[in-house]
Write a protein that binds this DNA or RNA. Sequence first.
DNA 1: ATGACCATTTATAATGGA
Length: 261
Amino acid sequence: MKIATWNVNSVRQRQHLILDWLEREQPDVLMMQEIKCETAQFPAEAFQKAGYDCAVVGQKSYNGVATLVKSGMEITTDHLPGFDHPVARYVEVRTQGLTLGNLYLPNGNSGGEDGYATKLAFFDALTARARAFLQTDTDFILAGDYNVCPTPEDCAPGALGPDDALVRPQSRAAYRRLLWLGLTDGLRALHPSGPAYTFWDYQAGAWGRDCGLRIDHALLSPRVAERLETAWPDRDERAMERPSDHVPLIVTLRDKAQATA
DNA sequence: ATGACCATTTATAATGGA
């Protein structure tokens, strides 16, 4: 099973890149963030034509998430329970025995201390969600744009200042609290050290200098982690014409029969 | 070489992104 997360930075601007990528990679699931449109403006027909059902939670301007699934799915929630802000940043579906939370965590650099508090509040609600899944023995993946570089090697030298919300100690502590419930960071489980960036700023020639960040993550529940086969950021996508500033993060899972054999 | 981007908004500069 092949599952990807990708902050596309406008689904309408990136529609053809996304469709080309789906055609090439044939993932079972694609969780997109920052679709930057209302639900009615989402190009669902084009994705349906490519063989995907769409769970879309749109919003004008920024925000907006959508999950594409090849086989059947059920939408379990269109918002993050316990996070009481009217923003389209979470959609959760159930497919093939997995609950898949697609999240777009607030950046936290705008809106002063209130803005930063909103980021931590999202983390709290997400952690509560994960705890509830563990208590009910639910197999799940929480994937998306976390807007956190978990460790210093996830941030290229000089890419961010020490007070940036993506690297602040409280941001990293919040990420660790979630992880330490017993989840597995899919990328780091297979590639424990070294850069594995998923984002390069449009500014300052960041891509050319490989001045990137690892801020998109896929966190797996224990039984799902046992099936983890590969995990990689698809860097090729950043070299395309008019790309998103993020690339897809892809994880593949062995099927259940193999895992228990 | 101390600059430099991109998308959206009932736009035509401001704002958020990271």
